[in-house]
C-alpha cells in the first residue's frame, strides 16, 4: 500500500481521487455532524464531483454521497492515497 506522506485539506482533492481522513479542525455542531456521518480519522473518502459552479463538492464516504462546502472541507485534513487500490 503506497501512500504519500503529504497532508492536504479535503477541499483540495480532485474529483476521482481517494484519501484517508487524518483529522478534523471543524468545531461545534458541524464537527459532530461530520463525525456522526462516519467521517472520523482513518476513514476512506472519495471525491466524486463538484457542483455546477465548482461548489459544493460531493464525497463518497461509507457508501453515502455527502455534499460539503469548500470552506468546511478545507478544515478536514486528509492524506491522499497514491493508487486507488483501496476502494471506497
Amino acid at each position: 500500500m503506497k501512500k504519500t506522506q503529504r497532508i492536504d485539506p479535503l477541499a483540495d482533492l480532485a474529483p476521482g481521487s481517494v484519501c484517508r481522513i487524518v483529522s478534523l479542525e471543524l468545531s461545534g455542531l458541524l464537527r459532530r455532524r461530520i463525525l456522526d456521518l462516519g467521517i472520523v480519522p482513518g476513514t476512506l473518502i472519495r471525491c466524486i464531483r463538484r457542483g455546477p459552479s465548482g461548489d459544493p463538492t460531493a464525497y463518497l464516504v461509507r457508501e453515502t454521497l455527502i455534499a460539503l462546502r469548500s470552506e468546511d472541507a478545507a478544515q478536514i485534513s486528509v492524506r491522499t492515497l497514491l493508487n486507488g487500490e483501496e476502494c471506497v
Binding site: L30, L37, P56, L65, A67, L68, R69, D72
Partner: peptide, 11 residues
C-alpha cells in the same frame, strides 16, 4: 456568515 452545509445525496 453562511454556516455549513451537510447534504446527503441519496441514490
Amino acid at each position: 456568515e453562511p454556516s455549513s452545509l451537510v447534504l446527503e445525496l441519496p441514490s
